[in-house]
Design a protein around this nucleic acid. Structure first.
Lengths: 180, 180
DNA sequence: GGAAATCTACTCGGATACCGCGTGTCCGAGTTATGGTGG
DNA sequence: CCACCATAACTCGGACACGCGGTATCCGAGTAGATTTCC
């Protein structure tokens, strides 16, 4: 992975909503409007989550995204890797090879094994990945759920249901009202 | 800090050379040519290390940089923070506040405390910082020293000494040779 | 009244601009050893 | 022979462009449901 970007933040927040709306699919537009963020941006990052097997997409009217796994099995690390493509946090430029003391070509003892600086960075990256891998979506949702009042869950489901009912009914009301 | 950039990699490699050249100051040019990297870039990042109290600068001919502390007291984390300015690895955008269910203003329970996603990221960042903080420049140098043959240290000091002798002697040789 | 065809709005998905940060470079101010000069 | 002075190259330090990756946006292909029409 590269580093902890906004895309990852958006993805995690969206996934939390999918966990709340257990069962009923939410479209990228739903997720965006629910959180007051850019719909286009949400639509851009979700295909990555789908390819990683974190969410499942369904097309057409009343389609949307569903968690492809139970929240207990989705680690934050998996989400990060899905978005960032598990690029390394540090890319060693092999400075050790270019030492002026190695006139023509660097000796074998210098290029053997892993660069000492690189090793430190990899160790740090592993510590970070381990931390992210130990937290699941369910853990984060629990933290969130502890703060929200009991009524909030109902409010959310009501909002989603209302939105589902509105879907596809616009044409009907428009023809009823008529253009003139 | 932001993330583990090339500047940090350069800085660490340069500091390793300063540790090897214990006592005699090395200029940014020395460090650059010794490693085959851009002198201008080295010159750009070293003032940050000086402000952080990691190196001490001396001006004028035969000036240069010196470690301001023993290598055992310089952690990799200190170097990272010196270069990056200890910017957070993740900046929370407080998405939770923009929820559409909070019509006018978000309720207090939603904005209270730390965002659950943010908390996970901070924990991961702390794990990384702890790892970087546990490694000192001396540790890295030891790893490097284990690989290099005993003769290498002498070669390095000879190279540096030769370079010091050359310094300031160019004008002399130039006037001696003369333009005509 | 029931079933098929049509039609619309909505969905995902990828290809396309904008912007900020990091990378890389350059030039100016200040300092110290050198070389020459005068006593 | 010694002390002083001007010189010049070297040093640090900050200010200036370039390029890439991430952010944000748009538009096209495909699909499921609702409406309409016909038997």
């Amino acid at each position: 992975m590269a580093h902890l970007t906004s895309s990852i933040e958006y993805a995690l927040h969206c996934l939390l909503w999918l966990a709340v709306a257990e069962g009923s699919p939410l479209s990228s537009r739903d997720l965006a409007e629910l959180q007051g963020i850019s719909p286009a941006f949400v639509a851009k990052i979700f295909p990555k989550l789908e390819k990683a097997g974190i969410v499942a997409a369904s097309s057409g009217l009343r389609g949307g995204y569903l968690l492809a796994q139970p929240p207990e099995r989705i680690t934050v690390l998996a989400v990060v890797d899905a978005i960032e493509g598990d690029k390394p946090l540090f890319d060693c430029q092999e400075i050790r090879e270019r030492c002026a003391l190695f006139s023509a070509e660097p000796p074998r003892w210098a290029t053997q094994g892993v660069c000492a600086v690189h090793a430190v960075m990899m160790k740090a990256e592993k510590a970070m990945r381990d931390s992210l891998g130990s937290e699941t979506l369910a853990d984060v949702a629990r933290t969130f759920g502890r703060k929200a009042p009991a009524s909030f869950d109902g409010d959310v489901k009501a909002w989603l249901q209302a939105r589902h009912q509105v879907r596809g009914a616009r044409r009907a009301s428009r023809t009823r009202e008529g253009p003139g």
